[in-house]
Design a protein around this nucleic acid. Sequence first.
DNA 1: GTCTATAGCTTGATAGAC
DNA 2: GTCTATCAAGCTATAGAC
Lengths: 188, 188
Amino acid sequence: MARPKIHEDDLLDRLTEVFQAHGYEGASLSRLSKATGLERASLYHRFPGGKEEMARVVLDRAAGWLVRHVLAPLREPGRPEERVARMAGLLGEYYLQGRRSCLLDTLSLGGEDSPFQSRVREAMATWVEAMASISSEAGLPREEARRRAEDALVQIQGGLVVARGTGSREAFLRVLDDLPRLLAGTDG
Amino acid sequence: MARPKIHEDDLLDRLTEVFQAHGYEGASLSRLSKATGLERASLYHRFPGGKEEMARVVLDRAAGWLVRHVLAPLREPGRPEERVARMAGLLGEYYLQGRRSCLLDTLSLGGEDSPFQSRVREAMATWVEAMASISSEAGLPREEARRRAEDALVQIQGGLVVARGTGSREAFLRVLDDLPRLLAGTDG
DNA sequence: GTCTATAGCTTGATAGAC
DNA sequence: GTCTATCAAGCTATAGAC
């Protein structure tokens, strides 16, 4: 732990990118090694649990990011609409305006047998609840707030899939722009 | 070609399911063999190009389905809203109400180097154009019709991702129910 | 903490019997 | 047209030097 923290963070960033781009099965140790500059054995030294542990750590880290940047705005000052806009801006940065995929998408392949299913489920639930809270605080009835939060997650995820599939990030950016209205607006 | 056509169709159905559930890299020949009941070598007899050809055929077949069930309603009788509802119903069946993932999602991992990138892009473009046409026919200005069609694709794909991730298909079904209003409504 | 070397298994793919 | 047997290459993972 005498190592500079930036080192560890950089490493996790690189690993994250590979899992985002290729999913779990596509993230071979060769790719992970190449992306990090560390040999396979060095990766095993840091992650004795191997590839599965890497994905777990990377996913938990992303979930932590989510809590810090999506849940946090709840306790910050400002109108709900402004806070949602801030969240949208941070999401845009995180996903590089749609150039990166979401781990909750790429690590959820394989269905029931996936070792990450429960983690993905929890992360999505947390995300939805946080957005539902903002929406509720904005004055919307509980049920509608929750519905809108689910729709928001649907649109974010769909925007990323469409961006990856078409190469055009336009629709994803429109989703982000529209988030304040969707979650906190009274006309939508 | 003396074989009953049902055989070939069944085979392609099974292959499709594996690619939907596991993506390209996760669809190992073991899984494809197990799912079809054919040994590896038999699969190679039918698909000399191997796994990549299997995915290509499966993807082209899905694109064909799309043309027949999404483009076709354009030329059928009925109000645009009704025809969109019919498309939504067919999509619900195709994706088993959200229990199945979309090939355009699962085969688009890997980014630029993916051998299916152009196919996925074309399929998504076709899909959007078809929906934009219905929307335009419903009386919406060209630009808005196209925007709504893109949003529709975003919501369909997002609904499937969220269904896979959360295990709850509620949000996806809501997307389908809402499609007629989104594409042909004057209030959304 | 990183490396080289290697083990053992699974992968995608082929040859040839039936 | 399907199979068994087999191949080389890639995979995940480990051992041990430095």
